[in-house]
Amino acid sequence: MSSLRRLHFRRVPSKAVIIFGSLFHKPLASTPSYSSLSSSEEPPLQSDSTKLILADEELTQINLLIPRLCDSSQLATAVNLTTTALLANPPLKSLSLSVFIDSLASQPDMTHAMSLLTRLKFTPTSYPYIRPIIIMLVTSYFNKYKYKEALKVFNWMERPDSPCSPDEKIYGIFIHGICKNGLVLEGLKVLRAMVGANMVPNCDLKECVYRGLLKQARINEAKELNDAFGCVNGEGMKKILLLLERLIVQWKD
Rank of each mutant, 00 (worst) to 15 (best):
P44M: 08
D48L: 13
T50G: 06
K51Q: 14
L54C: 04
A55C: 01
E57V: 14
E58I: 11
T60Q: 08
T60F: 15
L64N: 06
P67K: 05
C70K: 10
S72F: 00
Q74M: 12
A76V: 10
A76G: 14
N80M: 14
N80S: 12
L81K: 03
T82D: 00
T84M: 05
A85C: 02
A85Q: 06
L87N: 05
L87K: 10
N89Y: 15
P91Y: 15
L92I: 15
L95S: 09
L97P: 02
F100G: 05
F100C: 10
F100H: 09
S106V: 08
Q107E: 12
P108H: 02
D109F: 04
A113T: 10
A113C: 09
M114E: 03
S115L: 11
L116A: 02
L117S: 01
T118C: 03
F122I: 07
F122Y: 07
F122A: 11
T123S: 12
P124C: 06
S126F: 04
S126G: 00
S126D: 01
S126K: 07
Y127N: 07
Y129R: 14
R131L: 10
P132H: 04
I133N: 03
I134D: 03
M136V: 03
L137G: 02
L137Y: 02
V138P: 00
S140Y: 00
Y141R: 00
F142T: 04
N143H: 10
K144A: 13
Y145C: 06
K146I: 07
Y147G: 05
L151T: 05
V153C: 13
V153D: 02
M157R: 08
R159I: 13
P160H: 12
D161R: 14
D161M: 09
S162N: 06
